[in-house]
Write a protein that binds this DNA or RNA. Structure first.
Lengths: 343, 343
DNA sequence: CTGAAAGCGCTTACAG
DNA sequence: CTGAAAGCGCTTACAG
């Protein structure tokens, strides 16, 4: 049988209160008693029971990472990178870490609050939430400390962490324009995704600032799916032969678009320049290598956990709860100057 | 304040014991009381407190996935796939799921048993454990239900799940031989990894069965690192120009080896055939695409969790606690027939 | 510096 | 079918 605080107390000849204090680092304990207790604890292989600790105190705090629609795609390791970042943060903090998956379906059968209560979650980082999810509505009015990744919200209890998708997109499309492209299409993600809205907005701004016309039919949605991107790109390029560059809302989409171009006998980047988003590993291994907007998801996860703990401790500097992480564009082979005869 | 079982009992006008029974699905409860209680619970947004439940019963069981040296590599998504599989299993079971990372360092400061006690873990699936880790020794004699992935052990309390690495390697090397190769090198992983031992053994068996000499200097270790693989392959190929094919213990190694070949002016597969292991996503995106031994890590994770629960319930069919998952070789472009002048 | 006692929110024999 | 009571392993005022 596993040793309890009572066993340790008995063998050490002290009360359980004293043992508890020693294990919680209280300072007002005689050095000798402390040593004796640690000795006995070691001997009995004693370790505090977390459940009891959680139950009897308010102090053991747990932060959760909740991954939405965690039907994990081997090509995109972003959820794992976020997990990595959150985990790293909790390791060097006093918080316990737990991980859960959720889905639209699960959200319908149990509220966010219920879920967190049930699992004794003090606060949660949520990744992959869509604006159509039940949690999204609930969280707008929640009092539970929450941090959302890649989606904005106006609730002082709710923090957000992301790159500046709009600025990054503007920068990427500006780059295409600087290479001489004038007819630039966009293969976007999903209308339900906050990031898609922002990336499209950046795309539009870049065109407008450069006095280029925004052709509504140049923007298509591929739902972040490689195969849909393939089909949609073929459609777009065959009905708009003047397009010489594509800005894609993800690398997965960009890879589908590259396949589509190849399938139509177009060369990348000679006939069509392509920029992706996320800088997943594949971006540097496909041929040609893909120019892409990089976001450091591990840092985002780490910062999200940090922000969450600040919210929990009610310790926010200047009440700023929307944190922006720097992005980076990785220039590779998939973009070229526009050809003279294409102008 | 969060509602407790006491609140529900009071409002519903019953005892807390009755509420508890309703929430635990006991059948000997009046239908009306049951409905009343659910109604009140919903109204109060009541949900049982897991910590209390864990503490007061033996029934709430938790299984943990422990990832060792979880300094996650973006190129290899295998840990995440395992996580996915374990998670899927627990979702459809009565077990709670928790996830932790560990490291050699952490293992030194806290025993496996202590770690599990502290977190109320009933049993654990461990991935990435090396034969040199402290846990490895402890687990040889542990009574705690444990399942190891990709590493064997002789303890009836400890299950293992993996593909048959030896057979898979034999098959892969046989395939190289069938394409006419006679001088086949192996770039292996690490001497501390159980899978490396097995893969090397399969390699040796294939050569021996085909009456080919095993040249000891043909086998090199790259520690599963792409850059080390690059260097080691260059060394190997320059001191043994007769080598026409390489069997690599991982795709990461294979990709390093491909780079090395290219760097030396050798073409893959014309001058050098290469087979990898794991079939990571990159395998189908590199040029040329890589022939590789595929292992379905999600299934391995799922089965590991299943095996663990069988051990916990002491329900093992015929006491078989070493489960083998089928492997598969994906044939792609990186292997060719040996050239006549190379024979 | 140390201990007795109440309490955290549940479950589970047991009695009726 | 329902309830009173003990107990799970801790923490935390409070008293000394």
């Amino acid at each position: 049988m596993r040793a309890t605080i009572r066993d340790v107390a008995k063998v050490a000849g002290v009360s359980i209160a004293t043992v508890s204090k020693v294990f919680n680092g209280y300072s007002d304990i005689n050095q000798e008693t402390k040593e004796k207790i640690f000795e006995v604890a070691k001997e009995l292989d004693y370790t505090p029971n977390m459940a009891a600790r959680t139950l009897s105190s308010k102090s053991q705090q747990t932060i959760a990472l909740i991954l939405n629609e965690f039907n994990f795609n081997r090509k995109s390791t972003m959820p794992l990178e976020v997990l990595n970042g959150v985990y790293k943060f909790t390791e060097q903090s006093d918080f316990e870490f737990v991980f859960y998956g959720t889905s639209t379906e699960k959200q319908e059968s149990k509220t966010f609050r219920q879920f967190c209560n049930e699992h004794n979650i003090t606060g949660a980082v949520i990744q992959g939430l869509k604006m159509t999810d039940p949690y999204y509505y609930e969280i707008q009015e929640t009092s539970l400390p929450t941090v959302l990744i890649d989606i904005v919200m106006d609730n002082p209890q709710v923090g957000t962490v992301s790159i500046d998708s709009e600025a990054a997109s503007l920068e990427a499309v500006n780059y295409l324009i600087s290479r001489g492209h004038q007819n630039i299409g966009m293969i976007n993600g999903s209308r339900d995704a906050n990031v898609s809205t922002l990336r499209e907005s950046g795309y539009r701004q870049a065109l407008e600032k450069n006095d280029l016309l925004v052709n509504e039919s140049y923007v298509q949605y591929a739902n972040f799916d490689e195969d849909i991107a393939f089909l949609i790109t073929k459609n777009l390029l065959s009905s708009h032969k003047e397009i010489t560059a594509l800005f894609c809302a993800s690398d997965i989409i960009a890879i589908g678009a590259m396949r589509a171009a190849r399938d139509m006998g177009k060369k990348v980047p000679e006939d069509l320049s392509i920029i992706g988003f996320d800088d997943i590993v594949l971006a540097s291994y496909v041929t040609p290598t893909l120019t892409s907007v990089a976001q450091d998801m591990e840092t985002i996860g780490f910062e999200a956990a940090k922000l969450l703990t600040e919210i929990i401790k009610d310790n926010l500097e200047e009440k700023i709860n929307h944190w922006i992480i720097p992005h980076d564009i990785h220039y590779r082979e998939s973009v070229a100057d526009v050809k003279k005869d294409q102008k």
